[in-house]
């Protein structure tokens, strides 16, 4: 190991590229800082189409956090009512950042098309 000689052109190129990387990074953080704050607001944005897999019916569901903060342990419940009989299924998503979309799936023995399917967010933890 020796003392540092004058910077070579190659080292100056590395330094310049590094400055650009950090300026872009700080700029992107600044852009995000300008986004409006607010509480987390996870919503069910899309469900279906229902797919049949053997004896079960699979219902894919997309949830999206439209709020201004991260939601933790987001609980999603699906309630299928057919002829007064209710089937309930639960799912949870560990983390849902602002503007993030996650996909979960519910399985039912009965065809959801023959009844009423209610899917909703039942709660989440504020980190």
């Amino acid at each position: 190991m020796s003392g540092r000689p004058a910077r070579s052109p190659a080292e100056w190129v590395t330094f310049a590229a590094s400055v650009v990387v950090l300026v872009v990074l700080v700029g992107l953080i600044g852009v995000e800082a300008g986004e409006p704050d607010g509480p987390a607001l996870p919503r069910v944005v899309e469900s279906g189409p229902v797919e049949r897999h053997g004896d079960a019916f699979l219902v894919p569901v997309k949830i999206r956090n439209e709020g201004g903060a991260t939601a933790e342990s987001v609980q999603v419940a699906a309630e299928l009512t057919i002829g007064g009989q209710v089937s309930v299924a639960d799912q949870s998503v560990e983390f849902l950042a602002r503007n993030e979309t996650a996909e979960v799936a519910f399985l039912f023995v009965d065809d959801p098309a023959t009844g009423t399917l209610d899917i909703r967010i039942t709660g989440f933890t504020v980190p």
């Binding site: 020796s2 540092r4 400055v19």
Partner: peptide, 21 residues
Amino acid sequence: RTTQDIRRRDAAMDSVETVAL
């Protein structure tokens, strides 16, 4: 680097490169 940074300026510039990398 194989060279040792003695001056603060060099260490600071290398630090910018280290973090960016």
